[in-house]
Nucleic acid binder design. Sequence first.
DNA 1: CATACATATCGAAAATTGTCAATATGGTTT
DNA 2: AAACCATATTGACAATTTTCGATATGTATG
Lengths: 101, 101
Amino acid sequence: MELTNKQITVIFKALCDENRVQIFRLLQNGEKCACKLLEAMQCTQPTLSHHMKILCDSGLVNGRKEGKWMYYSISAEGTEAAVNVLRELTKVSESGECCCT
Amino acid sequence: MELTNKQITVIFKALCDENRVQIFRLLQNGEKCACKLLEAMQCTQPTLSHHMKILCDSGLVNGRKEGKWMYYSISAEGTEAAVNVLRELTKVSESGECCCT
DNA sequence: CATACATATCGAAAATTGTCAATATGGTTT
DNA sequence: AAACCATATTGACAATTTTCGATATGTATG
């Protein structure tokens, strides 16, 4: 599965914002509903909703709807995939000599 | 070594931009000087310089000056640290039950 | 030392992203 | 169905980021 550069940026955009990093911290001890996250965050409900969309799009977070509540949790598959992408992208395949003499 | 949320965002900002992802691809087969990177990229010299600064600040890339040339390479320590941060931040410490009944 | 070259910095414009108030949507309860 | 609640979406504005031309800095070379 080859990801485009664009797709890779989508993954790591999840971690480019302080608020979203904080959301990860909140999700570390298990699934939480949006209302609990909102309580803990210093932002409005629409802003939280926006961040959760970015997190879900990145694949690092899963969303699950139950009645009128929305539950979010860290995705094991997503995070493993992200680690692999990071590894792959920063792997040095010792070969090329460079450059300007 | 505890990183703040802000410091974490600095690391992953490196991978939030398509051009910078492309730069990682170029650095995968070893150290390259700025002029070679510039040849391969579709941007001007000041723009490349800006991206290289962000990459170096993230710790994922090392810069080395030699005469009037600047050589860049992927940092083994930096990338390992980034993987650890990603792992740590997305680790679920099974405990909390949630939430709204 | 004057010129040429590689890269960095500055300042401004364009593009993207984060934020919120207002409102819509979809589910639940009386 | 009407009122209510949780979350999503919209539209506008603020903040940040990307980009580039112009210029500065530092190094090598004639």
